[in-house]
Design a protein around this nucleic acid. Structure first.
Lengths: 116, 116
DNA sequence: ATCACATATCGTAGATATACGATAAAAAGC
DNA sequence: GCTTTTTATCGTATATCTACGATATGTGAT
């Protein structure tokens, strides 16, 4: 019947979840980190640094682009990516706000020591 | 041959990605928000507020628990959940650090205006 | 012991995600 | 125009996620 109920939540929750999803693979974290490290926006270089096939990296780049976290531009035969700082900061701030709102103390459950 | 290469990334990246994955569904964001709102740790109440079946909510709770973001405790016939503030703050801080490191300015790509 | 209630787990169907190689597309150089 | 280089897309197999109903489990009351 229904195999996806994501849309029944509110936009704020959907947005945050989508952002989190974009970051939910180590390769995508690694790509973002790499893009930040070399301020010039590499592309084939990313492939070289990753333990993944070129096509797979390209797919991850596409997802990051779809999420709006990076921009891409064609530069001759190469492609040139860089972080979309505005969007990323926006979402990061939403996340930080969420974290803040979650930090309240909780009920009676054992605290201290048990961290997992 | 290999359908999962996540382990070929470093631990930091894997940890952040797992945290992000735990947050990558609106239902789980909603659950955390709800847990924070009512400081007393509800459980059946969560089901009541969600557009999901009881078993589905239970599954989401389990994932959050596996990720270490919430604690669960049996309280009579009910189950009682609450946010694991320590772990959540830890991970949140890692994320905030990541965001900080990504905020550098980028190459020549058009800036301003294009926010996807 | 039995019943009622709350929750967890099982089984499962369909959707998505992740990975790859193969191939297409687009630009630069010959 | 053809080749090389670089990247994107297609087709695909397998794994994982998401959802549900059904059922098991566990507790408290009767």
């Amino acid at each position: 019947m229904s195999y996806n109920k994501k849309n029944e939540f509110n936009e704020y929750q959907i947005n945050l979840a989508e952002f989190a999803k974009a970051l939910s693979h180590p390769a995508r974290i690694a790509i973002l980190t790499q893009l930040a490290k070399k301020k010039t926006c590499i592309c084939g270089e990313i492939v070289a640094v990753m333990p993944l096939a070129q096509s797979t990296v390209s797919q991850h780049l596409k997802e990051l682009k779809n999420a709006g976290l990076i921009n891409g531009e064609i530069d001759g035969p190469k492609s040139c990516y860089c972080i979309n700082t505005g969007k990323l900061n926006d979402l990061a701030n939403s996340f930080i706000t969420l974290f803040g709102s979650l930090s309240g103390d909780c009920c009676s459950i054992k605290k201290g020591g048990d961290n997992e």
